[in-house]
Nucleic acid binder design. Structure first.
Lengths: 109, 109
DNA sequence: CAGGAATATTCCTGTCAACGAATATTTGAA
DNA sequence: TTCAAATATTCGTTGACAGGAATATTCCTG
């Protein structure tokens, strides 16, 4: 698995930006305001998110609307599938074990 | 969302370690061998993964068996739920749009 | 208990990323 | 065309982190 999505999201401010963008597109200034960041830092973080493919921009005159891209999250979701299989597997094993336990209990009565 | 899981996985070698551990517990030496790392680096990366809660250790004499912990991945999965809702939403919107299109097509015939 | 295997830790160094401050760029409006 | 708003970029500094080399620690075996 490629780690660029993870490095992008490893920075707390960028994580917060992403969570903000869940509710819809925002401009740089909006984001800076809502997060208490200075404008240049907001711009820089957005640049990183952009290069990581987590957001996209649409220029409207002076402003730039940053919008969440869902593909990376879908990839993350797909990547997690393998891990889900592992925990389902373990859950099944536990269920089987409990089943055996119940049978033994019954035999004892 | 807490970012420690992301920073831990942002480092390529640690990502590879995690993927290795999907197939079951391994010792430090095993991991170092399989990934072509020197033993100290393997130890250090495992320390980070341990502190991030991504793995757990069981000491067996000389060796230490490192094993994947699933909880962080389950948290990741839960966190993704919000994003899934967004893309389902958009998919529904698209489906609705296509539905309308089909109706218009029929009316034209 | 001496030695060797497996692992962890320390120290050093180089690199990279984040922040702050300052400045450049673009665009709409007077 | 000049000004102000919105955004991006550059530069310098600082702190975190990864790798290498060396060393410490733990535990088994002879």
């Amino acid at each position: 698995m490629d780690t660029t999505t993870f490095s992008a999201l490893a920075e707390p401010n960028r994580m917060r930006i992403v969570e903000l963008l869940l509710d819809g597109p925002l401009t740089v200034g909006d984001i800076a305001d809502k997060l208490g960041l200075r404008q240049p830092q907001a711009s820089k973080h957005l640049r990183v998110l952009l290069e990581a493919g987590l957001v996209e921009v649409q220029a409207v005159a002076n402003r730039r609307n940053y919008k969440l891209r869902l593909e990376p999250f879908q990839e993350l979701d797909a990547w997690l599938e393998t891990y889900r299989e592992v925990w389902d597997e373990r859950f099944d094993a536990l269920a089987g074990y409990l089943q055996k336990l119940r049978i033994k209990q019954n035999e004892q009565n």
